[in-house]
Simulated assay, not measured.
Amino acid sequence: MASRGSFLLAILFLPFVLFSAPICLARDSKVSLALYYETLCPFCSNFIVNYLAKIWDNGLISIVDLELIPYGNARIRSNGTITCQHGKYECLLNTVEACAIDAWPDLDVHFGFINCVETLVIEHKYLEWESCFAATGLDSKPVLECYENGYGHELDLKYAAKTNALEPPHRYVPWVVVDGEPLYEDYENFEAYICKAYKGNNRPEVCDGVVLKLSKEKKQRNSVCHKNDVGLLDTMKIEMVI
């Protein structure tokens, strides 16, 4: 008799279990954040090091599903080779960072390496990028092999396809996308957009302060590397090589 009663209770509560669990999961789903960038654009480096890295410190990373796409304004030639807006070293570092993402899928790991490289870019020391292996305690072998054996080029083509499929198409970098919506030149305010988009129950405290920024007038910035911007890039390239 008791077992029959337990069976009936289980039947009664089964719909609740089936339908409530997905709802709870949906409430706590993370906000997608995608950064389309190129490694030697100074505005991309600045965003990664001085803005994006902070979400690990303020707890926002707990509600974010972050994807990094290192390709930016590069172009594929008819022979399949790739040219980059800031020259050959940008192509090299785009591939290196793509290889790092592939070699270490854990976001905490590959972002740490990329953050190190982009810090060197800001400091005009990007030729010392290999020092980031020792600085982060990571084995250089998988990344160097990826770059040298041609697999890195395959990754570049994958990121090229992903970038070129953007809708609307990107016009410059950094191109920051939150839940499928580009932030355009208001990208530095990305935290407020994430907080607004998040519908879960585990809202980080930082959202109490940043969400109010959305009500303010957006700043008009020129802090981007446009697809056809040449003069600024040449100047920046000369300064960095020196």
Rank of each mutant, 00 (worst) to 15 (best):
E128A: 11
L233F: 10
Y198F: 13
V31T: 15
E123F: 00
I76M: 12
K213V: 04
L33C: 02
D208V: 02
L35H: 03
E97P: 06
F43P: 00
I23Y: 13
L212E: 13
Y184N: 11
Y51R: 09
C195Y: 08
K125S: 11
R75N: 08
D108T: 09
G180E: 06
T136S: 12
G112K: 08
C116F: 05
L18P: 00
L25H: 11
N149H: 08
G209K: 12
C44W: 01
R4C: 10
P15Q: 05
A161P: 06
S3D: 14
E185I: 15
R75H: 07
K158N: 12
P204L: 06
Q220Y: 15
P22N: 12
N73E: 02
Y198K: 02
L35F: 03
Y184G: 09
V121R: 00
I63S: 00
I63V: 15
A103D: 01
V109L: 13
Y159K: 00
L127G: 04
V173H: 07
V173S: 03
P70G: 05
F111H: 08
M1A: 15
F13T: 11
V210C: 06
V210R: 07
I238H: 08
C195A: 06
E97A: 10
L144M: 15
E205M: 10
N58P: 05
N50D: 14
V121N: 01
W175M: 07
F43W: 15
L18S: 11
A53R: 08
C195H: 00
N189F: 03
F113G: 06
T95S: 11
A98D: 07
E38G: 03
Y71K: 04
N73P: 04
V241C: 09
D208W: 07
E130N: 12
E38A: 06
S140N: 10
W56C: 00
P42N: 08
V173D: 06
L9N: 07
A161Y: 01
G80R: 04
C84I: 00
L40Q: 03
S3R: 14
F113S: 02
I194Y: 00
G231E: 13
F111I: 03
C195D: 05
P182A: 05
P15S: 02
A98T: 09
A2L: 15
C146W: 02
V96N: 01
A98M: 07
K196A: 13
D65I: 09
L144E: 12
K216C: 09
D186Y: 10
S6W: 14
A135R: 13
W175Y: 10
I69Y: 03
K88H: 10
A135E: 11
V117S: 00
D102N: 14
S20D: 07
S3I: 12
Y184W: 15
L35D: 03
G59V: 04
T83L: 09
S29G: 13
A34F: 06
E154L: 09
E118T: 03
V64Q: 04
W129C: 00
P42E: 05
F16G: 03
E118Y: 03
E123R: 14
P15M: 09
A103P: 04
T163W: 02
A34K: 11
E148Y: 07
N164M: 15
L33W: 01
L157H: 07
V210G: 07
G59F: 00
I69E: 01
V117T: 08
W56G: 04
S45A: 15
E181K: 14
H86P: 01
V241Q: 14
Y193K: 04
Y151T: 10
Y126P: 00
